[in-house]
Simulated assay, not measured.
Amino acid sequence: MQLTVFAVGRMKSGPERELTGRYLGRLEKAGPAVGLTFAGVTEIAESRASDTDRRKADEGAHCLSLAEDRTTALVAFDEGGKTLSSDEFARWIARQRDDGRKRALFAIGGPDGHAPSVLERADLAVSLGRMTWPHQIARILVAEQLYRAVSILAGHPYHRQ
C-alpha cells in the first residue's frame, strides 16, 4: 500500500524540514519490508480566499481530488479526531493494507482546519492531542508516527513500550 502525506502550507528550509525529511526517509527505506511504500508529500499553498469557509473548501477540494478512489484510505488529522496510541495507529494502517487498500492519504489541514467534506470522507480522523501545534511540528509528528507505525509492524526495536 502506498502512503502519501497531503499538507496545506509550504514547508520552508530549516530544522523542521530536515527532521521531517529524516523520518520520511526512514519510512521510505523500512516500509517495503511490511508492504508499505512511501509515495511522497503533496503540499499546496494556503488558500487566499477572504473567508474561512471558502479557504477550507478550496484546500479541501485539493485533498479530496487525491482521495476520489475508494481504494484510498483517507486519514484527516483534526483536533476533533480520535486520540490513538502508536500501536493502534499502526494496527489501523495494517488493517487497511490487509483489506486491499491501494493507498493511504494522511491529510494535514491548514490553519483553519479541514473542510467538513474532508472530515465526512475521512475513513479516520486522528487528533495529535489537545494542544495546538504549528504546521511544521504537525508535519514532524505525522512523519515520525508513520515511521513508528512501520517500525511497530516490522517488530523493530525503535518502538519500545
Rank of each mutant, 00 (worst) to 15 (best):
A73D: 04
R95C: 10
L36I: 11
E88P: 07
S127F: 08
P157S: 07
R103W: 07
L24N: 13
F106V: 09
A115L: 15
A33G: 13
K82V: 05
A94Q: 13
G25I: 08
R55V: 09
R95G: 13
E16A: 15
L27P: 01
A76P: 09
Y23M: 14
Y23H: 15
D53E: 14
G155R: 09
T52M: 03
G109F: 00
D112W: 00
S65A: 15
L3M: 03
R121K: 08
R26M: 02
D58H: 07
Y158P: 14
R139N: 09
H62P: 00
S127L: 07
D123M: 00
R22G: 10
H114C: 03
V34F: 04
G9C: 02
E88M: 11
S13I: 04
L153A: 03
V75H: 01
D98T: 15
G110R: 01
R48I: 03
R55G: 05
H114D: 05
D58F: 06
D98H: 15
M11V: 11
V126E: 02
D69R: 11
K12H: 13
G81L: 01
K56S: 13
L27S: 13
H135I: 08
L66G: 08
A45C: 08
H62G: 01
D87K: 10
P15W: 07
S86C: 06
D69Y: 05
L19R: 00
G9V: 03
G129C: 15
T71M: 08
S85Q: 10
G100E: 11
D69F: 04
G81I: 01
F106C: 11
T4P: 10
E59M: 08
T37M: 03
A57W: 02
F77I: 07
F89H: 12
E59I: 14
D98E: 15
P134V: 01
R48H: 06
A33R: 14
V118A: 13
P32I: 09
R54H: 10
C63V: 13
F89I: 10
R17I: 08
H62M: 02
S47T: 11
G109S: 05
A154T: 12
